[in-house]
Design a binder for these strands. Structure first.
Length: 554
RNA sequence: GCGCCUGUAGCUCAGCCGGAUAGAGCAACGGACUUCUAAUCCGUAGGUCGCAGGUUCGAAUCCUGCCAGGCGCGCCA
């Protein structure tokens, strides 16, 4: 709809140019927006003001040049007005609006999908928490954002894959194995000192207990060189299964789980470094091997192989991202906790060195979550093993509210998560406001059915009966959904979806209080049922993008 | 010390590739249920857009400098 209008404005600009009113040496970017107040019109363009400088003319004067041709299509634009400093306001023809609405209905379930991502194959990597303990709340936000962004981008036409990178290599894994081993020995009465730098959480004891139950004291041989490997593997698997379970319950599924270990096993880590060495991006110094990341705006070079030959985490990450490129993704999208932002420049350097520069790689940082209970921040410390897990929160407030709360703020805004608010089933809680609208519409449909008004097919409905201001407002709001999807996806801003839904639903609730849908007037009832059908399906689709359920009854 | 994010109504936040009287939700206050779900609706009140400069016809938005909070600055992951 906006595009139609945009083309219309462009043609008016051309006409003004042909008539010698405008110079237009560069094609202007025509912005179509919605006026603050609906009374001013359905849409507006700022193009006259944008052009003022280059044309060296008064914006209102420029607008004057355009209005004549903008008035030439009453079937499209019913009324054109110049307002304020040089806005051109449009009132669309009611029939045109209804026509757009009709074609939206024809798209049925697909309405809202768009093509802005067409041809882009994207890999969204998110969560990727180390398998050394259960997911905490911060991971939860990353999970919700990543999963919903993936869904959103699919809606916007991107070809999306999702992936969880498992850091199952390195010192932390040894520490994990050792932690379990010590707890295992404790269980069997061979307790000793438990070093502070090992994992303190109770979940380690659970794993140890499980091993005792299954294998008894078979792994007690302390000098057994295989023992640590055993404890490492079992712990990792156990924790990873827990993570998968937690995510599954949180409605987050990954297309692939990618193990760091496999990169080492297949020689891809070696190969990646060799490749970069051949290109001159890797060199040896002080007995270590370095990536020349400073050549790409990183503040200094980074070690990839330490003195002594051990590879850094970064080293494997290089190979991992080369792997991603080889799999043919033209957009590599990593979602990281904000605490990793210092890591961004070196990773950008890697991708650039690998020839997959700025357009092909993007990191989305997700800021921290602060839990609030009783108006107070909930203190957490990983050290003491005292922290609130994602599973705890989901258990306490439910998946819908948890996901909604994680998604309703911009990712680069710190999030205050009020546990008590999220649990409340009152108007203070924004989740229910949206879900309630969905349920309400379902209920209206049931009423219609019970009164013998069969759900109408599009062909047998006269949309011309939708002629009230509220009808048009609602139609316009519904019609803007595909654009919201496209913009949110392009900007990787999932939070626009709940904001949009909130606005849509507010209009619906308001409509509900003004217009009775199911009435004696059957043709009108049918038209309104179709209007609500579109609203309901947009709500359902929006919630589906968020991974929040759309209940039929509340 | 350097870098990134944030600072907008009592609270939580949108708006930030410059544009119309700065918006929403909640909280506060006043109204609306014999009606398709009142988990709703209608209305009122509430703001030096952190501070100070600059660019511009026009700045919450762009630039510079401060201030405050958060997070980073490893041959950790």
């Amino acid at each position: 709809m906006k595009n139609t209008l945009k083309e219309f404005v462009c043609s008016a600009l051309n006409e003004a140019k042909n008539q010698g009113h405008l110079v237009l040496d560069t094609a202007p970017d025509v912005v179509i927006e919605e006026p603050k107040d609906e009374k001013m019109g359905d849409f507006a363009t700022t193009v006259a003001m944008t052009l003022a400088r280059s044309e060296k003319k008064n914006p209102r004067q420029i607008a004057e040049y355009l209005t004549a041709s903008l008035s030439s299509r009453p079937d499209l634009v019913e009324e054109v007005q110049i307002a304020g400093p040089g806005f051109i306001n449009f009132r669309l023809s009611r029939d045109f609006l209804r026509g757009e609405f009709r074609s939206a209905l024809e798209q049925g379930e697909h309405f809202g999908r768009c093509e802005v991502g067409r041809g882009t194959k994207v890999l969204v990597e998110f969560v990727s928490a180390n398998p050394t303990g259960p997911l905490h709340v911060g991971h939860g936000r990353g999970a919700a954002v990543g999963d919903s962004l993936a869904r959103l981008m699919q809606w916007a036409g991107y070809e999306v894959s999702t992936e969880y990178y498992i850091n199952d290599v390195g010192n932390q894994m040894n520490n994990l194995g050792r932690s379990t081993q010590l707890r295992y020995r404790e269980e069997l009465g061979h307790g000793g000192a438990f070093p502070e730098d090992l994992y303190q959480g109770d979940y380690i004891r659970d794993i140890a207990r499980a091993i005792v139950e299954k294998d008894g004291d078979r792994h007690l041989g302390a000098d057994d060189p295989d023992a640590l490997g055993f404890f490492r593997t079992v712990s990792c698997d156990h924790i990873l299964n827990g993570i998968k379970e937690d995510l599954g319950r949180f409605r987050v599924e990954f297309d692939q789980w990618f193990s760091e270990q496999t990169l080492h096993d297949s020689g891809k880590v070696e190969a990646a470094i060799q490749w970069l060495r051949d290109k001159g991006f890797v060199y040896d110094k002080d007995g270590a091997t370095w990536l020349k990341s400073s050549a790409f705006r990183d503040e200094k070079d980074r070690v990839v192989i330490k003195q002594g030959g051990e590879k850094t985490y970064f080293c494997a990450d290089i190979a991992y991202h080369q792997e991603k490129i080889e799999r043919g993704f033209n957009l590599i999208l990593d979602i990281w906790g904000a605490d990793h932002h210092g890591y961004v420049p070196r990773m950008e350097a890697v991708l650039e060195a690998l020839g997959h520069g700025s357009d092909g790689f993007q990191v989305l940082l997700v800021q921290f979550v602060t839990l609030i209970r009783g108006g107070e921040k909930v203190q957490m410390s990983t050290r003491s093993g005292k922290f609130i897990t994602l599973a705890d929160v989901v258990e306490e407030v439910g998946v819908d509210a948890t996901r909604f709360f994680f998604l309703m703020r911009s990712s680069d805004s710190h999030l205050d998560f009020d546990l008590e608010l999220a649990k409340k089933e009152t108007q203070e809680n924004p989740v229910y406001y949206i879900q309630y609208a969905h349920a309400r519409i379902c209920s209206i449909f049931k009423t219609a059915e019970s009164k013998g008004i069969a759900f109408p097919a599009l062909e047998e409905v006269d949309l011309g009966l939708l002629d009230q201001p509220e009808d048009f407002s609602l139609m316009k709001k519904v019609l803007s959904f595909p654009e919201v999807v496209g913009k949110s996806a392009e900007n990787r801003e999932v939070h626009r979806i709940p904001f949009y839904l909130q606005e849509l639903v507010a209009q619906f609730h308001s409509y509900y209080s003004v217009h009775r849908v199911v009435s004696e007037d059957v043709p009108l009832t049918r038209a309104r049922l179709l209007l609500l059908l579109s609203v309901r399906s947009v709500i359902a689709n929006g919630l589906q993008i968020m991974g929040v359920s759309a209940p039929e009854k509340m």
